[in-house]
Amino acid sequence: MNRDAIEQEIVDLIKEMLNLPFVDADTVLVGNTGVLDSMTIVRLLAEIEHRFEFTLDEDDLTLDSISNVKRLTEWVIKSRQASH
């Protein structure tokens, strides 16, 4: 699965979970204008683990690394490589 496909799947997941019509690579996820609260982030990450079949290292997780869709995608790719 290439980077763009992973990003698209994450975009679709967020759209579906939050019923948001517009989500793209630059959508801010966390922070004052973010669309996720801390419990929703964890639910999203659990769903991502399930879909992409890997285990996230939570110690490695910072808010910065998931602050928008683009960064979240990078982080997922990195964690996935580390886990496999």
Binding site: V30, G31, D37, S38, M39, V42, E58, L61, T62, L63
Partner: peptide, 13 residues
């Protein structure tokens, strides 16, 4: 702990 990860993220937010 893994189960209270949302609590940690809340503090960071």
């Amino acid at each position: 702990k893994q189960r209270n990860l949302p609590a940690r993220l809340l503090l960071e937010m």
